[in-house]
Protein backbone atom coordinates (compact mmCIF):
# COMPACT_ATOMS: atom_id res chain seq x y z
CA UNK A 1 0.00 0.00 0.00
CA UNK A 2 2.72 2.39 1.02
CA UNK A 3 4.72 1.15 -1.92
CA UNK A 4 1.89 2.06 -4.35
CA UNK A 5 1.52 5.57 -2.89
CA UNK A 6 5.25 6.04 -3.23
CA UNK A 7 5.12 5.02 -6.88
CA UNK A 8 2.24 7.40 -7.58
CA UNK A 9 4.16 10.22 -5.91
CA UNK A 10 7.29 9.49 -7.90
CA UNK A 11 5.30 9.50 -11.14
CA UNK A 12 3.70 12.88 -10.26
CA UNK A 13 7.13 14.34 -9.58
CA UNK A 14 8.52 12.90 -12.83
CA UNK A 15 5.57 14.31 -14.78
CA UNK A 16 6.02 17.73 -13.21
CA UNK A 17 9.62 17.71 -14.39
CA UNK A 18 8.99 16.17 -17.79
CA UNK A 19 5.93 18.21 -18.79
CA UNK A 20 7.86 21.43 -19.52
CA UNK A 21 10.49 19.40 -21.36
CA UNK A 22 7.78 17.78 -23.47
CA UNK A 23 6.27 21.23 -24.12
CA UNK A 24 9.65 22.48 -25.31
CA UNK A 25 10.09 19.44 -27.52
CA UNK A 26 6.61 19.89 -29.00
CA UNK A 27 7.23 23.52 -29.92
CA UNK A 28 10.65 22.60 -31.33
CA UNK A 29 9.12 19.88 -33.50
CA UNK A 30 6.40 22.31 -34.59
CA UNK A 31 8.99 24.88 -35.65
CA UNK A 32 10.95 22.20 -37.44
CA UNK A 33 7.83 20.98 -39.24
CA UNK A 34 7.08 24.55 -40.31
CA UNK A 35 10.62 24.91 -41.64
CA UNK A 36 10.19 21.66 -43.54
CA UNK A 37 6.86 22.78 -45.04
CA UNK A 38 8.48 26.08 -46.04
CA UNK A 39 11.25 24.26 -47.89
CA UNK A 40 8.83 21.87 -49.58
CA UNK A 41 6.81 24.88 -50.69
CA UNK A 42 9.96 26.53 -52.06
CA UNK A 43 10.77 23.38 -54.04
CA UNK A 44 7.20 23.31 -55.33
CA UNK A 45 7.46 27.00 -56.31
CA UNK A 46 10.76 26.42 -58.08
CA UNK A 47 9.33 23.40 -59.88
CA UNK A 48 6.97 25.78 -61.66
CA UNK A 49 9.82 27.95 -62.95
CA UNK A 50 9.45 26.87 -66.56
CA UNK A 51 5.77 27.80 -66.65
CA UNK A 52 6.61 31.40 -65.73
CA UNK A 53 8.39 31.66 -69.06
CA UNK A 54 5.26 30.39 -70.83
CA UNK A 55 3.14 33.05 -69.13
CA UNK A 56 5.29 36.20 -68.91
CA UNK A 57 2.17 38.29 -68.27
CA UNK A 58 1.64 36.74 -64.84
CA UNK A 59 5.24 37.55 -63.99
CA UNK A 60 4.90 41.07 -65.36
CA UNK A 61 1.87 41.75 -63.19
CA UNK A 62 3.83 40.65 -60.11
CA UNK A 63 6.89 42.74 -60.96
CA UNK A 64 4.36 45.56 -61.16
CA UNK A 65 2.87 44.68 -57.76
CA UNK A 66 6.15 44.30 -55.89
CA UNK A 67 8.38 46.63 -57.87
CA UNK A 68 6.51 49.52 -59.46
CA UNK A 69 4.14 50.02 -56.56
CA UNK A 70 7.11 50.13 -54.13
CA UNK A 71 9.10 52.66 -56.15
CA UNK A 72 7.63 55.71 -54.46
CA UNK A 73 8.18 54.60 -50.86
CA UNK A 74 11.66 53.25 -51.68
CA UNK A 75 12.75 56.41 -53.50
CA UNK A 76 11.42 58.79 -50.85
CA UNK A 77 12.96 56.72 -48.02
CA UNK A 78 16.27 56.57 -49.88
CA UNK A 79 16.29 60.32 -50.31
CA UNK A 80 15.71 60.97 -46.62
CA UNK A 81 18.13 58.28 -45.44
CA UNK A 82 20.84 59.79 -47.65
CA UNK A 83 20.09 63.29 -46.38
CA UNK A 84 20.20 62.24 -42.73
CA UNK A 85 23.44 60.32 -43.32
CA UNK A 86 25.02 63.44 -44.79
CA UNK A 87 23.90 65.60 -41.85
CA UNK A 88 25.12 63.16 -39.22
CA UNK A 89 28.30 62.25 -41.09
CA UNK A 90 29.17 65.89 -41.56
CA UNK A 91 28.88 66.50 -37.83
CA UNK A 92 31.34 63.70 -36.98
CA UNK A 93 33.72 64.24 -39.91
CA UNK A 94 34.00 68.00 -39.35
CA UNK A 95 35.47 67.27 -35.92
CA UNK A 96 38.44 65.66 -37.68
CA UNK A 97 38.58 68.21 -40.47
CA UNK A 98 37.65 65.47 -42.95
CA UNK A 99 34.42 66.90 -44.40
CA UNK A 100 35.64 65.97 -47.89
CA UNK A 101 35.20 62.30 -47.03
CA UNK A 102 31.47 62.82 -46.62
CA UNK A 103 30.81 61.39 -50.08
CA UNK A 104 32.66 58.18 -49.24
CA UNK A 105 30.80 57.77 -45.99
CA UNK A 106 27.37 58.32 -47.49
CA UNK A 107 27.96 56.19 -50.58
CA UNK A 108 29.71 53.29 -48.85
CA UNK A 109 27.16 52.95 -46.07
CA UNK A 110 24.26 53.23 -48.51
CA UNK A 111 25.59 50.87 -51.14
CA UNK A 112 26.89 48.25 -48.72
CA UNK A 113 24.37 48.13 -45.90
CA UNK A 114 21.53 50.59 -45.73
CA UNK A 115 20.42 50.21 -49.34
CA UNK A 116 19.80 46.45 -49.28
CA UNK A 117 18.59 46.25 -45.67
CA UNK A 118 16.22 49.21 -45.57
CA UNK A 119 14.82 48.33 -49.00
CA UNK A 120 14.20 44.77 -47.85
CA UNK A 121 12.42 45.99 -44.70
CA UNK A 122 10.31 48.40 -46.75
CA UNK A 123 9.43 45.72 -49.30
CA UNK A 124 8.57 43.30 -46.50
CA UNK A 125 6.16 45.84 -45.07
CA UNK A 126 4.82 47.19 -48.33
CA UNK A 127 4.69 44.17 -50.65
CA UNK A 128 5.35 41.14 -48.41
CA UNK A 129 2.35 41.77 -46.18
CA UNK A 130 0.15 42.28 -49.26
CA UNK A 131 1.34 38.96 -50.70
CA UNK A 132 0.60 37.11 -47.47
CA UNK A 133 -2.85 38.66 -47.12
CA UNK A 134 -3.66 37.93 -50.75
CA UNK A 135 -2.61 34.28 -50.61
CA UNK A 136 -4.18 33.81 -47.18
CA UNK A 137 -7.47 35.26 -48.35
CA UNK A 138 -7.39 33.14 -51.50
CA UNK A 139 -7.00 30.14 -49.23
CA UNK A 140 -9.74 31.29 -46.83
CA UNK A 141 -12.20 31.90 -49.67
CA UNK A 142 -11.22 28.56 -51.20
CA UNK A 143 -10.00 30.04 -54.43
CA UNK A 144 -6.86 27.90 -54.21
CA UNK A 145 -9.01 24.81 -53.71
CA UNK A 146 -11.12 25.96 -56.68
CA UNK A 147 -8.07 26.10 -58.90
CA UNK A 148 -7.13 22.62 -57.78
CA UNK A 149 -10.62 21.44 -58.71
CA UNK A 150 -9.92 22.71 -62.24
CA UNK A 151 -6.69 20.66 -62.27
CA UNK A 152 -4.60 23.82 -62.10
CA UNK A 153 -1.75 23.66 -59.61
CA UNK A 154 -2.33 26.75 -57.42
CA UNK A 155 1.29 26.87 -56.25
CA UNK A 156 2.66 26.97 -59.78
CA UNK A 157 -0.02 29.26 -61.11
CA UNK A 158 -0.32 31.71 -58.19
CA UNK A 159 2.82 31.48 -56.04
CA UNK A 160 5.60 30.98 -58.58
CA UNK A 161 5.02 34.24 -60.54
CA UNK A 162 4.83 36.16 -57.25
CA UNK A 163 8.09 34.60 -56.09
CA UNK A 164 9.93 35.55 -59.28
CA UNK A 165 8.32 38.98 -59.27
CA UNK A 166 9.86 39.70 -55.88
CA UNK A 167 13.15 38.15 -56.97
CA UNK A 168 13.41 40.47 -59.97
CA UNK A 169 12.09 43.60 -58.30
CA UNK A 170 14.25 43.62 -55.16
CA UNK A 171 17.76 44.13 -56.64
CA UNK A 172 16.37 46.86 -58.90
CA UNK A 173 14.76 48.60 -55.94
CA UNK A 174 18.05 48.35 -54.03
CA UNK A 175 19.93 50.06 -56.87
CA UNK A 176 17.24 52.74 -56.97
CA UNK A 177 17.39 53.29 -53.20
CA UNK A 178 21.18 53.61 -53.14
CA UNK A 179 21.32 55.97 -56.11
CA UNK A 180 18.58 58.24 -54.76
CA UNK A 181 20.24 58.14 -51.33
CA UNK A 182 23.59 59.27 -52.76
CA UNK A 183 21.79 62.12 -54.51
CA UNK A 184 20.10 63.06 -51.22
CA UNK A 185 23.48 63.06 -49.50
CA UNK A 186 24.83 65.21 -52.31
CA UNK A 187 22.04 67.78 -51.96
CA UNK A 188 22.56 68.12 -48.22
CA UNK A 189 26.36 67.79 -48.19
CA UNK A 190 27.20 70.02 -51.13
CA UNK A 191 24.11 72.19 -51.29
CA UNK A 192 23.40 72.79 -47.62
CA UNK A 193 26.65 72.16 -45.72
CA UNK A 194 29.10 73.49 -48.27
CA UNK A 195 31.28 70.42 -48.89
CA UNK A 196 33.36 70.84 -52.04
CA UNK A 197 31.56 69.44 -55.07
CA UNK A 198 34.61 67.89 -56.72
CA UNK A 199 36.00 66.36 -53.54
CA UNK A 200 32.60 64.83 -52.72
CA UNK A 201 32.52 62.82 -55.97
CA UNK A 202 36.23 62.16 -56.46
CA UNK A 203 36.78 60.82 -52.94
CA UNK A 204 33.70 58.65 -53.40
CA UNK A 205 34.94 57.29 -56.70
CA UNK A 206 38.40 56.53 -55.38
CA UNK A 207 37.12 54.60 -52.35
CA UNK A 208 33.95 52.84 -53.53
CA UNK A 209 34.71 49.81 -55.68
CA UNK A 210 32.19 48.63 -58.26
CA UNK A 211 32.70 44.89 -57.82
CA UNK A 212 33.35 44.95 -54.06
CA UNK A 213 30.70 47.42 -52.97
CA UNK A 214 28.03 48.03 -55.61
CA UNK A 215 27.71 44.49 -56.96
CA UNK A 216 27.83 42.98 -53.46
CA UNK A 217 25.06 45.34 -52.39
CA UNK A 218 22.88 44.27 -55.30
CA UNK A 219 23.62 40.60 -54.55
CA UNK A 220 22.45 41.25 -51.00
CA UNK A 221 19.27 42.69 -52.48
CA UNK A 222 18.74 39.54 -54.53
CA UNK A 223 19.16 37.30 -51.47
CA UNK A 224 16.81 39.48 -49.42
CA UNK A 225 14.30 39.41 -52.28
CA UNK A 226 14.26 35.60 -52.18
CA UNK A 227 13.91 35.52 -48.39
CA UNK A 228 11.20 38.19 -48.09
CA UNK A 229 8.96 36.83 -50.84
CA UNK A 230 9.51 33.24 -49.74
CA UNK A 231 8.52 34.01 -46.15
CA UNK A 232 5.53 36.08 -47.26
CA UNK A 233 4.27 33.38 -49.63
CA UNK A 234 4.82 30.60 -47.10
CA UNK A 235 3.00 32.43 -44.32
CA UNK A 236 0.07 33.11 -46.65
CA UNK A 237 -0.04 29.54 -47.93
CA UNK A 238 0.34 28.09 -44.42
CA UNK A 239 -2.16 30.40 -42.72
CA UNK A 240 -5.24 29.21 -40.90
CA UNK A 241 -8.07 29.94 -43.36
CA UNK A 242 -9.98 32.33 -41.13
CA UNK A 243 -9.91 36.12 -40.86
CA UNK A 244 -7.98 35.91 -37.57
CA UNK A 245 -5.58 33.39 -39.14
CA UNK A 246 -4.86 35.60 -42.14
CA UNK A 247 -4.25 38.60 -39.88
CA UNK A 248 -1.85 36.57 -37.72
CA UNK A 249 -0.07 35.26 -40.79
CA UNK A 250 0.39 38.79 -42.15
CA UNK A 251 1.95 39.96 -38.90
CA UNK A 252 4.16 36.88 -38.77
CA UNK A 253 5.30 37.40 -42.36
CA UNK A 254 6.52 40.96 -41.68
CA UNK A 255 8.15 40.08 -38.35
CA UNK A 256 9.88 36.95 -39.64
CA UNK A 257 11.00 38.66 -42.83
CA UNK A 258 12.48 41.61 -40.92
CA UNK A 259 14.33 39.32 -38.51
CA UNK A 260 15.58 37.07 -41.30
CA UNK A 261 16.82 40.05 -43.32
CA UNK A 262 18.72 41.56 -40.39
CA UNK A 263 20.27 38.26 -39.32
CA UNK A 264 21.14 37.29 -42.89
CA UNK A 265 22.68 40.71 -43.46
CA UNK A 266 25.17 40.02 -40.69
CA UNK A 267 26.14 36.70 -42.29
CA UNK A 268 26.40 38.22 -45.78
CA UNK A 269 28.47 41.15 -44.53
CA UNK A 270 30.83 38.78 -42.72
CA UNK A 271 31.19 36.72 -45.91
CA UNK A 272 31.55 39.65 -48.33
CA UNK A 273 33.52 42.23 -46.37
CA UNK A 274 34.85 40.01 -43.58
CA UNK A 275 38.50 39.91 -44.56
Amino acid sequence: MAFKALRRGARAVANAVLDPVAELGRSGLKALAGLGRAHLLLLHILAGSAEVLWRPRLLLAQVFNVGVLSVLIVAVSGLFVGMVLALQGFYVLSQFGAEESLGVMVAASLVRELGPVVTALLVAGRAGSALTAEIGLMKATEQLAGLEMMAVDPVRRILTPRFYGGLIAMPLLVALFSAVGVLGGYFVGVGLLGVDDGAFWSQMQSKVDFREDVVNGVIKGLVFGVVVTWIALFQGHDSTPTSAGVSRATTRAVVHAALAVLALDFVLTALMFGN
Binding site: L60, L173, L176, S178, A179, V180, F210, V214
Partner: peptide, 23 residues
Protein backbone atom coordinates in the same frame (compact mmCIF):
# COMPACT_ATOMS: atom_id res chain seq x y z
CA UNK B 1 5.11 51.00 -66.01
CA UNK B 2 7.17 47.86 -65.46
CA UNK B 3 9.37 48.86 -68.38
CA UNK B 4 9.82 52.34 -66.93
CA UNK B 5 10.60 50.85 -63.51
CA UNK B 6 13.27 48.56 -64.93
CA UNK B 7 14.77 51.37 -66.99
CA UNK B 8 14.89 53.63 -63.93
CA UNK B 9 16.59 50.91 -61.89
CA UNK B 10 19.15 50.29 -64.62
CA UNK B 11 19.84 54.02 -64.81
CA UNK B 12 20.36 53.96 -61.03
CA UNK B 13 22.77 51.03 -61.35
CA UNK B 14 24.62 52.82 -64.13
CA UNK B 15 24.83 55.92 -61.94
CA UNK B 16 26.23 53.84 -59.07
CA UNK B 17 28.76 52.23 -61.38
CA UNK B 18 29.97 55.35 -63.15
CA UNK B 19 29.49 58.19 -60.72
CA UNK B 20 29.71 56.57 -57.28
CA UNK B 21 32.17 53.72 -57.70
CA UNK B 22 35.53 53.60 -59.41
CA UNK B 23 34.34 51.86 -62.58
Amino acid sequence: LVGAFMAAALVALFFLAMKVSNL
